[in-house]
Amino acid sequence: MSTKAVQEVQPSIIKDFKEITKMRLALSVVFSSVAGYLLGAETIDWSIVLLLSLGGYFMVGASNAYNQIIEKDLDVLMNRTKNRPIPAGRMSVTTAFIIATVFTVLGLVILYNINQQTALFGAISIFLYTCVYTPLKTKTPLAVFVGAIPGAIPFMLGWVAATNDFGIEPGTLFALQFFWQFPHFWAIGWFLYEDYKRGGFFMLPTGKQDRGTAVQTIMYTIWTILISIVPVLGITGELKLSIVAAIIVFLLGLVMLYYALQLFKKMTEKAAKQLMLSSVFYISLIQIVYVLDKFIR
């Protein structure tokens, strides 16, 4: 093989590996996990941070690889997924399965080395995403509810990694990220409605781009905002929030609520995309504010 051919193949292999494991999504999950760890840790152990980051990345990568194996025939039908490694024929199912299996084993072993509870929640996450959420996507809009469970685990996983305990604190972090996922994923389901329809996926709560979906999006956004400021009341154990931080968190929530209201008002794919983008900025900024508030207080 010529040098030029090798140079062309290498980026393709790397790109396909990143796509089968959804590296960008995995890194956002690692960010959430580390934020949760920093909130729960009395003293920061950087070796735990490293293990949590690696274990979290492997678990998410495994879930995504399993997902793409299961949905390979449906991915061919949708514009956003037809060029993924498996449906495009650049990667075999066997190769993808090996990657998923190796990632699962590595992820569980690494998380187990932090503590047993962290490994347990990691295993629950990969099971629910692969064996429950993925099959349900073509059957019922309730799939989003199930998918929100593994999606909410990373933030609380960090706290459990730091404390080896599950209580009101990680429960609150879980609830925040759980409710946030509904406006986030419904916004995605809205602007990708036609593409999802081609694949036979039911992502919107009413199954349609209608007022009912928009109203539910607003309601879950409000729930997210309310949960985000609960720690300021002093009822969430060691998870605390200063008044200044709570005001900032509340204002950030109002920005996302504005875009949810805009979706109700305009009912357009552009409005849905704006809500999705605002939700991504929201959850990242919320986690940063929570962490900064702990160390500045």
Rank of each mutant, 00 (worst) to 15 (best):
F166L: 03
A187T: 07
A214F: 09
Q181P: 03
G171T: 02
A272Y: 11
A271I: 09
Y193M: 15
I153Y: 00
S2A: 15
Q181V: 04
G147M: 06
D75E: 06
I20G: 00
N67P: 11
L204F: 01
G56L: 02
N115F: 04
L192D: 07
Q262K: 10
V6P: 10
T172P: 12
K208H: 14
G40C: 07
E71F: 05
I227L: 02
G171K: 03
A65V: 08
K72Q: 05
T94F: 10
K4L: 14
L106N: 07
D75G: 05
Y133W: 07
W180V: 00
A175P: 01
I296T: 08
K22G: 01
Y193N: 11
M156Q: 08
A41S: 03
G61W: 01
L239Q: 08
F155R: 01
L239A: 13
V280I: 15
T81W: 08
L54W: 01
L176E: 01
F250Q: 14
V93D: 12
W190A: 07
M78T: 14
S12M: 02
G55T: 03
K15Q: 08
E8Y: 06
Y112K: 09
M1W: 12
R90H: 14
A100K: 11
P11F: 05
P135D: 15
I48A: 01
R297P: 06
A187L: 08
Q117E: 15
G237L: 04
M256T: 04
R198W: 09
D73C: 08
G36Q: 08
H184S: 05
E71D: 06
G55N: 12
Q117A: 12
Y66I: 05
L50Y: 11
Y66E: 06
G200Y: 09
L285A: 02
K240L: 06
Q216W: 10
K240M: 13
V109L: 08
A272M: 13
W46P: 05
G40R: 14
S284A: 11
F31A: 07
A175K: 02
F185D: 02
W159N: 02
I20Y: 01
L192I: 15
V280H: 05
A260Q: 02
N164V: 08
D210W: 15
V249D: 06
E71Y: 07
Y57V: 01
S28Y: 09
T140H: 00
L157Y: 02
A152L: 04
N79W: 03
R24T: 03
P170Y: 02
N64I: 03
D16C: 00
M23V: 06
M203A: 12
A119N: 09
L128T: 11
F191V: 12
G199H: 06
